[in-house]
Design a protein around this nucleic acid. Structure first.
Lengths: 222, 222, 222, 222
DNA sequence: CATGAATGAGTATTCATTCAT
DNA sequence: TATGAATGAATACTCATTCAT
């Protein structure tokens, strides 16, 4: 899974939205834009700084992207696509319906999946999170193309394990919410505190505790 | 608790950081700034629009706030203070050590507390969340004056209930994280979906499911 | 001579152009204005800084002086008057026609006169010199009320000593120019270098050399 | 000497501080800036007026000069360089040690030199004189790069003629001061009065009188 | 395809001046 | 008389975007 993942920024840098190949300059522009947007936020970033960091002339940016916002979208749109890539790909060949033997495996897969993704795309995700509230078009697209798809996918996976007990009594949406909350809380904390040198963060243990917590909370046995 | 809470925006608008009384124009400036910052983000907001919405001359803003950033801080700084008000107040008279009979009560208090707070301060919190990543000074202050205080407070409350079973075996920080994740996941989902007219969101039930999930996850009986 | 002189700033601060008495606040305003104008130049000075230094409200300045320029004139105009005070006063009672026995005495008087004046009015003179080029009204007034008067006065004094030799052959305007050039060059150099601690400036000697130079240059014996 | 001199404003307008060629617009900006600064003083000049007179957009100014002050320096700095050009050039090929046969020749050279320079650079010199008091960096540079160099140069020239009599007894610095005072007094008066139509200014005679005055004052024979 | 000079609308901020209290 | 809140025009400077080369 992560093998494909590892290469997608490079892919992003290799071809643009139309699938057309990127020149080396265009790639440098996108790289710099990611850096600058993540550092200062979209609105506070200037195309001139992006050009400078990319080592190209200001005009060159606008040869490739009509406006500054188009450049933002060129970065953020593929990020959305990739966000759901694992789900779509699996769903595609229908393998996944039988892929997981236990809900615990599902949780572990989600954790690894997200962590890996986060590690490789921190800057882009930061930009996405920052800008989503201000761009209704991006919101709509995220909801429609990503969240809805992912949720539907998860709903079907979860349904498979709702065979009885507590889990059967909970709406699948609630199961998903509770699971994702715990996982995202784990990842977020890990991201913030897990990297400090002074931190007492035993990653292995925290992850196991989190999984156990969810399993117990859903009335499942590990 | 929420009685006091309900009035604090009005308080914010009644007196500034120095405790000096706000003129009516100053209050209008702060109001407009909250609106505009929340709508467009700090960097994309212009002082001229804020002035216009407040019905004052642009110069008037700068008579009260030396810079645009000072205006931001005048909005966000008291929000931080209020964020921890409930914790500090209770700790003060030491009542709370004996306040909660069960961890369930703690969870319910946190939920009500935060929901109420969120309801009244949505815009300001949005601004805070948006700007924190770009203002290291705000980050430091939030960490030192709010997060550290709240966590320490929660740690002591949690410790009281770590008498045995699963909960005793988990670090209190982990208990807090798992609890907060679930609560915040609930509140966030509720905030996004709970207000849509078409939504199938049974708030009562979702809250109870969440509390039950946490209790079970921590090995506690309701 | 310098006895009167020594007090004129105080006089300036005691009564305004109409001869009306100055309040203490008004005096503080003028004082501060002199400081600030001299430090930063008229155009780069702000009335708010002047008010602040004077410890009065911004509005107070405009109660006393209709505009910023009026404040400038209130400082500079009396300076012009005082500039020629010694000449006018003496001319008035006609004593001076017989006051000096030699041209050397005239030179010595001018030097002492100017040095004393400069010492007490450095800031105001600096302002005058800086602003003269940009205010034609001030130029006209200086020319008409000061320069013309002083030159006429000097012309008559010089004439008295043009009894023969080189001096008789030079136009009195030329004599004045040559004398004033030397004196002003001496004073200027002294002002710039004479106050440095490291400077090798023997004031006594420089003054005597200057006087001797002029006397010799004009073909007079000391 | 003055042949080269005559061309330096054009040079200034042909290439900037880095030696890079100036565009036509850049030249117009500098021209307008010189005009406006000279007319109103630096602080009272607005970049918008400069842009308007130059017939360019305001932004264009800042493409070439990062700040208004940088524009000032771009005008004033080369003026300083040119100010000492004649001295440096001569010193360079060491011709000048034997260049003047008499001190009178030195005086005549200085007069012509300065008059020519003044004629061509009146505006820039006015700006320089006006702004020097408010820019310590410019002061330092002028002192170090111009005044010190010129004085040293003059000191050596003067020393050559201090073979006896009055001149030998005077410090060379004093000789320079007295000579420059007389020359500058002559030039200043000439500049102010010599151009009025009504003026009774016989330039030829005034110059000769001045030179004779200095020679006599220094105890030299013409 | 790439450049970078040029633009003009826009930015935060300052300022001299007014006026109700 | 003195205040200081309020103003709005002006200020230096930035920026996304265009276009001739």
């Amino acid at each position: 899974m992560s093998d494909t993942m590892e290469q997608w920024i490079e892919e992003l840098l290799r071809s643009d939205a139309d699938g057309a190949k990127m020149t080396e300059k265009q790639a440098r522009i996108v790289q710099s834009a990611i850096e600058v947007f993540a550092e200062k936020g979209y609105a506070a970033s200037s195309t001139s700084e992006i050009a400078q960091r990319a080592g190209v002339a200001e005009g060159t940016i606008f040869r490739h992207y009509k406006t500054k916002k188009a450049l933002l979208l060129a970065i953020v749109a593929p990020a959305m696509t990739k966000l759901l890539a694992p789900f779509v790909l699996r769903g595609f060949n229908n393998v996944l319906d039988s892929e997981y033997d236990s809900y615990e495996q599902v949780l572990r897969a989600m954790i690894e999946n997200r962590i890996e993704f986060l590690r490789k795309n921190r800057s882009i995700l930061k930009i996405l999170l920052q800008e989503i509230p201000f761009h209704p078009d991006m919101q709509a697209r995220l909801q429609r193309d990503v969240i809805a798809v992912v949720l539907e996918r998860l709903r079907r996976i979860v349904a498979k394990f709702q065979t009885g007990g507590v889990m059967k009594e909970l709406p699948s949406a609630t199961v998903i919410r509770l699971s994702l909350s715990a996982i995202m809380g784990y990842i977020a904390t890990r991201t913030v505190y897990g990297e400090r040198e002074d931190a007492e963060w035993d990653d292995e243990r925290e992850r196991e505790d989190t999984i156990a917590f969810v399993m117990r909370g859903l009335g499942l046995r590990q």
